[in-house]
Nucleic acid binder design. Structure first.
Lengths: 140, 140
DNA sequence: GGGTAGATTGAGAGTCGTTCCCGAGTGTCC
DNA sequence: GGACACTCGGGAACGACTCTCAATCTACCC
């Protein structure tokens, strides 16, 4: 790993990449690569599955999209706001709430400092039962 | 899903299940099903891969183990210890520090309450550069 | 506008984790 | 001890994802 190279992230805005970006923009929730691929095909955009995976991976790496694994183990993607945030997910229906919590950020930094770690990123995920699903479960 | 049956969770303590439980107990960290299967084989415990998956799934369902997906998308399992903790991992050398932070626990509960979620569990992972690796990188 | 180098694409085969199937084996209860 | 249901395990099947490589496209220079 050399420190000199200045990765320009010069991703060419090809037809395929634009289409994938658009698909993500118009989707409110997490979508699997296969979903995106299907939707594009259905909309008449002929894009290869490999390209969809490649593009999503590149976008995830550059922080343009969030990646999550659904309970089936499938990777799902969603365009994310630039602002760093976390997720609160319902384990029953999959509903997702975005959370921005400066409290965790502070905590993470404090812990990192305490142990001499620098340049720390963190992943936080809360999984629970949303009010609707809890009510449905109680009704049985 | 019927509400009448009272699944007794009467899992027979077979040799295989005991072996898997022991393997989980002796492992400090998240392990994939394949890891567990390999370890059991190596230790001379002949257990089928299908059995490992089945057992882990049953244990996850009954809340005995935590399930997580590692970046490769592989499901990993860990015995749900009473002492809940998180990890601070060095992205360069892989060194891991265990963290117990009641601050995050409180934060997680507060957030869950705020959004009407119940029965919330959370995963937190901090990834950074440990002091040694940071020094080594600066020396270049 | 034309030419060129290098990035990007896509079809399909390959890999890998996981689940399903079903005959054989084992534990439990009477 | 015997009957019966639960459990096991090997291997095939499945599905998500990655790799390969020739063809195509884009940015850039002249």
């Amino acid at each position: 790993m050399s420190a000199t190279e200045e990765r320009p992230t010069a991703l060419r805005p090809t037809r395929q990449r634009v289409a994938i970006t658009d698909a993500l923009r118009s989707a409110a929730d997490f979508q699997s690569a296969q979903d995106i691929h299907d939707n594009l095909r259905r909309a008449g955009d002929k894009v290869g599955l490999a390209t969809v995976y490649r593009t999503l991976q590149a976008m995830a790496e550059s922080g343009e999209v969030d990646v999550r694994h659904n309970p089936a183990g499938e990777a799902t993607y969603r365009r994310c706001s630039e602002a760093h945030h976390h997720h609160l997910v319902c384990r029953s229906c999959g509903r997702t709430v975005e959370i921005t919590g400066s409290a965790v950020e502070r905590w993470a930094h404090a812990i990192a400092d305490e142990h001499g770690f620098t340049d720390v990123t963190h992943t936080v995920e809360l999984v629970g039962l949303c009010a609707d699903c809890a009510a449905a479960a109680a009704r049985e």
